[in-house]
Structures are given as structure tokens and as C-alpha cells.
Simulated scan of single mutants.
Amino acid sequence: MTIVPHPAAHRGGRRRPSADGLPSSHTVSIGRIPVPLGSGAAEGSGAPWQTNLPSCSPELLAATEAVVANARRAVFVSDPLLGPRLSQIGSLLASVVKRHGVLIELALKDCLERSGRYVVLRDVAMPITVTTQELVRTGTIDQLATTSMALTGPVAQTVKIDLIVIDRMLNRAFVAEVKRGGGKSEARKIHQVEWVLRCAQVQAIAFLGSMNFHVASARAVLIDLYGRAGYSPDLSVSGPAIDALFGVPVLHAVEAVTGLLAARLHADVPDLLELALASLEPLPGAPSP
């Protein structure tokens, strides 16, 4: 998640919040703040609902196949302690793990869209107003869950959201951040992500309305695939609960991508290790083998 300046912020700072900016039960006024769109925001509705789809699209599988090869071609800096060969292995492994997080997002988007039920926007820039921030600062979790704010008044910040998932069948939306969850995130990061998610949940109905996506409710979720990221229970969804959240077996796609990526990685690592071991020189004073 990144936070970037909003193009309306310099103008909004001289404007007073209107009465429409006060909390309401999903009664909003929209369209007054220019909305920067993410890479998926122009996508419309798809075909009717389908079942028994393959786990992944050819495009997603091709992207997965390319990860290890691209990581091997990447330029890396040799660490003085590790030397060039071990540095290459460390760089490759770190790159593949990072790219796995991106593939998880792409797998969720791919599977949900191909179900026909969902429209999925990825990497979306959402403006957060000053009034919304004040509400989140003072409101309770229960209050925030039933409150929607108008997209009016000064803009405090613009945030990038991993996925906005629009459920056409139930007329609702999920504002989602996606984490691998292999280990606990830093406390500062947890606080930042949770703050942004709660603000985005309150702002989401009006924001989506400005793009002509009209939903009755919005929920913020932290998709924690492996369940160890350490975020608040009211936001976190992990393991099989991810399938239950969407009513679509998305974990099959995630598992397929993960398995393919692991296979490609395991096929390449032995050769790299052999080269690394061959490049090692005995340390001064070390006993002979």
C-alpha cells in the first residue's frame, strides 16, 4: 500500500467541509472530487455467472512461468560478505518471494473475474477526505461498519488499494489489501494499513459511485493468505475463509500459481547452488576438508 499526493488536495485545503460530509447511513453525495483511477478502473461487467472454470487463465500461468527467469536476469549487487554467487541466490529468492505476493493478487483477480460474478479493480487510487479521517479517528469499529461518507470537502490523502472487488450478485464491495502472511508485519506497518483500510471502507460507496459502480455496502478486508501477518481479527481473512468470503473457490487458483512458481524455483536453485559452492574459497586458517 502506498500513499501519494492527491491532485485535488491543494484546492481542498482552502474549502470547508460541507454538511454532506457528515456521517450517514449510506446516504452520500458524490462526484465533487476528481478521482484518480487505478489500472483496473475502466473495466466493466462481464458475462453471466459460470461454474467449473479452470484454476488459472493462460495469461496468469504465463506470468507465473516468467517470474524465476526474470529474477535470474535481474541486476544484483554483490554483498562483500556473501560474494557474487551467494548474493545472486539471495537476491533471486527475495525477488521470487516478493513477486509471489503480486501473483497472489493476480490470481484472486483472475479467478473472481472469470466467475462472472465480480468486477475487480486492482491498484486503485482512492481519495480520503479530511472529514473521513476525523470520523475514523474518533469512531468505533461498529460505527464505521455502518457509516458511509460523501466524497466532498478537502482531501487529506490519496491511498493505493490492492483490490476493490465488486459483487454484482449481492450489490456490495470489498476493499482489500492482500498479504502473503508468512510472518508478522511490523507494528508501524500494521497501524498504517489498518488506518487506510478503515478510511477506505467509509469512503468506498461514494468513491465507487463516482465511477458509476453503485453498491449498497462496502467492507474492508485484509486477505492474510497464510494467517501470520498479525492484523486485527475484524479485518483479517485467512485460509479457507477466503473462499467463503467470496463464495468462489479462489484458493485453487492461488495454490496452482504457488505450485507452478515453486516448481520453477526448485528446478533452478540446484544449479545456482552448485555454482555458488564451486566459487567458495577456504577461509584463511580454516582446516582442510
Rank of each mutant, 00 (worst) to 15 (best):
D79M: 03
R198A: 06
L251S: 04
P282S: 10
G183N: 09
A218N: 06
P17E: 04
H100G: 02
S55F: 08
T138W: 02
S238Y: 06
P23N: 08
N70Q: 15
L260E: 09
G227H: 08
L22T: 06
S236E: 10
A150N: 06
A218H: 05
I223Y: 05
R264D: 13
D243R: 09
N52S: 12
T27Y: 10
R72Q: 15
A220D: 07
S18V: 07
N171M: 07
I242M: 13
T51S: 12
A63L: 15
L277N: 04
A62W: 04
P287G: 07
T129K: 05
Q157W: 02
R15D: 07
V175A: 01
A42M: 07
I164H: 01
V136S: 01
Q133F: 02
L283S: 11
S232Y: 00
G90C: 11
A66C: 04
S24N: 11
D123V: 00
D243S: 09
L261I: 12
G44L: 12
L261Q: 10
H10K: 07
I33M: 06
R122L: 01
L245G: 05
H252C: 06
D167G: 06
M126N: 00
R168H: 12
N212V: 08
P289S: 07
L272D: 00
A204K: 02
H6T: 07
G153F: 06
V77M: 06
R73P: 01
R198Q: 12
Q143H: 14
P154T: 08
P270V: 12
V221R: 14
A286P: 01
D224Y: 13
A241Y: 03
L222H: 13
D224N: 08
C111T: 12
G153R: 03
D224P: 09
V68I: 13
L121R: 09
S148C: 13
S217H: 14
V96N: 02
Y231R: 02
N52P: 00
